[in-house]
Nucleic acid binder design. Structure first.
Length: 995
RNA sequence: GCCGGUGUGGCGAAAUGGCAGACGCACAGGACUUAAAAUCCUGGGACUGUAACAAGUCGUGCGGGUUCGAGUCCCGCCACCGGCACCA
């Protein structure tokens, strides 16, 4: 930009960044830590030496989601949240809190590994270079992080503890009686007396089936392109979240974490934390709790029973067939050899699946389809269908979902409520992994079953009447109108001719022992469930959509599992944990980072590393990127602790309520805030966590899960990690599109900083609009706030001295420019004088607005309030020193460099010693100063504005009404009308209703 | 399809049920300047009206409602954004 620089931010900003670093201005002190007497924090709070938790001021933990340090560097989206948290950190510090505001690196990740595969460059080298670049960029923004607490998930001293937590998971189980995680040792101790002389192998199998970290052979999401498996959460529409590559289902041996054991706690504890409704709702949906019943159906001519889960046990009388998922373990057992006579051809073949059937079966199947053959063995058809379903990728499943497929197994089951024989099918619209992997189909009251039943001509039997007639197919009469007796009254109800999925009244639901007829759905559910339980046919059950967390990846650049594999005397492979003393377990050095030729993870290439002297072999999978981010907020509390993942005292102080009792505080998350300036507003856990919505279910659910396990095992003191969470909105490009390299609309913070400085950048990011909103970037807008900072500068600085400074700059070599700042002299209009009432009013209105807006995180309106102050102050002939100082305190959280510079100079000018602005007590506003003598009262006639009256502030209603009625501007609107009513809102408004 | 969110000037936005559009951008006019940039001042929702004022009408996605009064509350739609999606 060729235009003149508004103020010398290029000198001011590095100057203060250096000063803060030298003074360690933003070091947060732990209980028991030595606090230097010279530190501004010590001086503010009269502390020095070692202070315990009770002596320290209340804590406030403000956390940013730490970034993945990509090669592309920071984009303008990152600093949005970071700026918001920095402003609040500085504000809270001024309010008297001990603020913890750390930063670190989520540095494991795929890009560094892919680069390594291509170039042979060790991922650590790339990662460290990226971290250095991110650090430089973040530091140039003047954020008040305590860098002494910096962590990187790739640091062995960090992932030592990630592995340690994994061992905790491995060595724990979920005790359903106590409803919490307990050490495996307790499980073994409880089992010993129950089963005498149990073999080691049997005990091991039992224990392994209970661990929170366990091995599973289940089908997984395999992404050939990425060469790794993915968690369900990482698969979007059958494609990988990263890169968008196809994902197929494939059985593999994998590590799983038993997050499902915590489904209920993860769900109900959402009510105890302050997150947005939409975010809580996303987590609730993901956990997907549903109440219903499990019911057993006897298979005809077979010992087996099929257990189904249903949320609508009230529709049991309408169950006309059953469906097992293709993978269901009973399929082989119950499937008959031949189909019963008279089985329709359509029940066996399906043109939709034709081409996708395995080749072996295709011909057979085709013959039948084309009528060349009269019959086919049921086993053959079932086998063909299972093959068809298994090879389908998730993507194909979604694509083919438009029309349901399935085949009849030849077997029948007995509907336990009415003894009817109903056919058993297999179909892939029933998922193996949800509920029991089998359903009772009620086509009259479930759209999927209905669709399936129509296609295969299965019986549709209505058992619930709708309270309303059909609205679709207007003009055609409802199937039949009946009368049900509910609550002793006859009520009309409508039995639809096709599918009604809502709640209504049961009909056609009676056997010799129980009748649901006439009951509303909720009551019918209870009644039939009670009957089933009494008969031993079923029971009330709760199911969750949440699945266990697939925790292993076939990658190099991740935490290795502290696990080895051994064989017992019988030759059975089993796993065993390494001792804690073996941590950190480092990944081996490799010169090739690709998976092995036979599809083993890259770690399998390191032959020396792989096999131990006792011939056991190491686990070659690594942990997913989520592992390190599950607990980093805890490591910040005590980042250098070599004995423990976090020290007890530190954890208690920063996360818990330690010290609070001794200060006589009892505030829980539910009680109302006492006052905006009350330094007792800290809460258990992280007080404020800011980050993007993209982590709504993944990171935030996983981290809550780990935290709860650590809580159960006594390692942390709160059940939830993040008390308040705010999602910052996306920043779009100037074209209103998502920023992306391919669109060429990416804004690089470095460029903005060079042209306008960090303070302007910070200010603009906050001025754009509400933090949570999605909003487009506009560089012109940066110029606007930059001009505002220029006005602030000129409000304080003598113009002539600045001209002198600028001239000197052109004639002095660049290295000495910093010294030239001393040529700047404060404006002579700033004097130690008493402020006028008008000036005080302007100031205190600003204090009030900025304070309240900071508490509500309304940064944009806080900034506009400061603009109003400056616009007003520009007109002042004389500028009282205290007023000007106070304004700088308000500005400081937003534009800390400029505020510090002016603060220091102002003190210098008046021969005062400037204590650090960062710890100067936050100003309080005096409501008495805001009282107006005269107020403006709008006068409406019939709700329309007709006049505005200036009246004394203490005006009473009678006077006000009289003044309104006699207004010259109002009178014409009352001419020829009768006044019906006059609404007087005291000191606010008058509305005359006339007609 | 289900869940959540958002719709206000040319643009970003602001408004405890009480003067819609604070603050800023862009724009226009003026001052300063030889000139420009920068800075400072002024203006502005739309329409009707007037020589110019005055004045009036309409205006917060659309349609209803509650209320003396609705951007704000209620009901029904529409559009866009985000999430979930055969979860029985």
């Amino acid at each position: 930009m060729s235009s003149r620089r508004q103020y010398p931010f290029h000198l001011i900003e590095p100057k203060w960044q250096q000063a803060w670093e030298q003074q360690q201005a933003f070091r947060a002190f732990n209980p028991g830590e030595e606090i230097p007497a010279s530190h501004a924090f010590a001086q503010r709070h009269n502390l020095s030496g070692k202070a315990d938790a009770a002596k320290l001021p209340p804590k406030f933990y403000i956390l940013d989601m730490f970034p993945y340090p990509s090669g592309a560097g920071l984009h303008v989206g990152h600093p949005e949240g970071y700026t918001a948290t920095d402003i609040l950190a500085r504000y809270r510090r001024a309010c008297g809190f001990n603020v913890l505001h750390p930063m670190g690196w989520d540095s494991f990740g795929l890009p560094a590994e892919q680069y390594a595969v291509k170039t042979g460059q060790h991922p650590r080298v790339t990662t460290e270079a990226n971290i250095a670049n991110f650090t430089r960029q973040i530091k140039s923004l003047g954020f008040s992080y305590d860098w002494s607490r910096e962590v990187a998930t790739t640091d062995p001293e960090y992932f030592r503890w990630t592995q340690w937590i994994f061992l905790k998971l491995y060595n724990s189980y979920f005790d359903t009686g106590k409803n919490c995680a307990r050490p495996i040792s307790e499980l073994i101790a409880n089992r010993k007396p129950q089963i005498a002389n149990e073999s080691a192998e049997s005990l091991r199998t039992f224990v392994d089936s209970k661990r929170l970290a366990y091995v599973s052979e289940a089908p997984v999401n395999w992404c050939p392109e990425l060469g790794t498996v993915l968690a369900n959460e990482e698969v979007i529409d059958g494609k990988s979240e990263v890169g968008g590559f196809p994902v197929i289902r494939r059985p593999m041996r994998q590590w799983m974490l038993r997050i499902t054991a915590y489904a209920e706690k993860l769900l109900v504890d959402l009510d105890t934390i302050d997150w947005s409704d939409s975010l809580k709702e996303m987590q609730r949906n993901w956990i997907g709790r549903s109440e219903g019943a499990e019911v057993d159906f006897q298979v005809v001519g077979h010992a087996a029973k099929i257990r189904v889960f249903t949320t609508r046990p009230d529709t049991l009388f309408g169950a006309t067939y059953m469906v097992l998922s293709p993978e269901h373990k009973l399929v082989e057992d119950i499937c008959t050899w031949d189909y019963p006579a008279g089985t329709p051809k359509e029940w066996i073949v399906d043109e939709k699946m034709g081409p996708a059937i395995a080749a072996d079966f295709f011909k057979l199947w085709l013959d039948l389809y084309q009528g060349k053959k009269a019959a086919v063995a049921a086993r053959t058809a079932v086998e063909a269908y299972r093959g068809f379903a298994a090879t389908k990728s998730d993507l194909e499943r979604t694509e083919l979902a438009k029309e349901k497929t399935g085949v009849f197994t030849g077997a029948y089951a007995i509907n336990p409520v009415n003894g009817e024989k109903i056919p058993i099918w297999i179909a892939d619209y029933v998922l193996a992994s949800y509920g029991t992997g089998a359903i009772m189909a009620v086509p009259a009251h479930d759209e999927r079953d209905f669709e399936f039943a129509k296609k295969f001509n299965l019986e549709i039997k209505p058992v619930v009447a709708s309270p309303l007639p059909r609205v679709r197919d207007f003009g055609s009469p409802p199937d039949s109108m009946i009368s049900v007796v509910a609550d002793g009254k006859a009520t009309p109800a409508f039995v639809w001719f096709d599918c009604f999925v809502g709640e209504g009244f049961s009909v056609n639901s009676v056997n010799t022992e129980v009748s649901l007829n006439g009951l509303p759905t909720a009551e019918a559910k209870n009644k039939i469930t009670a009957w089933l339980e009494a008969k031993g046919l079923g029971k009330k059950t709760i199911n969750y959509k949440l699945r266990d967390w697939l925790f292993s990846r076939q990658r190099y650049w991740g935490e290795p599992f502290p696990i080895v594999w051994k064989r017992d005397a019988g030759g059975n492979l089993f796993h065993e944990a390494l001792p804690e003393s073996a941590l950190p377990l480092l990944p081996p050095a490799l010169d090739d980072y690709k998976p092995t030729a036979d599809g083993q993870p890259p770690l399998a290439r390191a032959k020396d590393w792989l096999t131990l002297p006792d011939s056991s072999t190491r686990e070659t999978n690594t942990m997913p990127q989520w592992a390190g981010s599950c607990w980093y907020y805890l490591r910040y509390l005590d980042a250098k602790n070599a004995q423990s993942f976090v020290g007890k005292e530190a954890e208690n102080y920063w996360m818990g309520t330690a010290g609070r009792e001794s200060r006589g505080e009892s505030r829980g998350p539910d009680s109302a805030p006492a006052s905006t300036l009350d330094p007792r507003l800290s809460t258990p856990g992280v007080d404020l966590y800011v980050g993007g919505t993209e982590h709504a279910v993944l990171h935030l659910l996983y981290a809550r899960f780990w935290h709860k396990v650590l809580f159960d095992l006594g390692h942390v003191s709160t059940p939830e990690p993040f008390f308040k969470l705010v999602n910052q909105g996306l920043i779009l490009g100037e074209d209103g599109q998502k920023m992306s390299k391919s669109r060429g609309n990416v804004v690089n913070p470095d460029d903005i900083l060079a042209e306008f400085g960090a303070d302007a950048f910070r200010l603009y990011e906050m001025f754009m609009g509400p933090l949570q909103d999605t909003k487009p970037w506009n560089t012109k807008g940066v110029e606007g706030v930059y001009r505002f900072l220029g006005r602030v500068w000129r409000l304080f600085v003598d113009e002539k001295s600045e001209t002198a400074f600028e001239q000197a700059e052109t004639t002095t070599e660049a290295q000495r420019h910093g010294e030239l700042l001393d040529l700047i002299v404060m404006d002579g209009a700033i004097q130690e004088i008493t402020a006028t009432p008008a000036q005080l009013k302007t100031l205190h209105a600003c204090i009030k607005k900025v304070t309240e807006d900071l508490d509500g995180m309304r940064f944009n309106t806080a900034i506009s309030a400061m603009m109003v102050f400056v616009n007003e102050a520009m007109t002042w002939q004389s500028k009282p020193l205290p007023v000007m100082k106070t304004f700088l305190q308000l500005l400081a959280p937003f534009a800390p460099h400029l505020a510090e510079e002016l603060w220091a100079r102002l003190h210098g000018t008046f021969g005062q010693t400037a204590s650090s602005l960062a710890y100067a007590p936050w100003p309080k506003f005096d409501p008495a100063l805001l009282v107006e003598n005269e107020i403006e009262i709008p006068v409406q006639v019939n709700g329309k504005l007709r006049d505005v009256l200036r009246v004394p502030a203490d005006v009473d209603n009678v006077t006000l009404e009289a003044a309104a009625k006699s207004s010259e501007k109002v009178k014409p609107f009352l001419d020829g009308k009768t006044i019906r009513k006059v609404v007087v809102v005291p000191k606010k408004l008058v509305n005359i209703v006339a007609s």
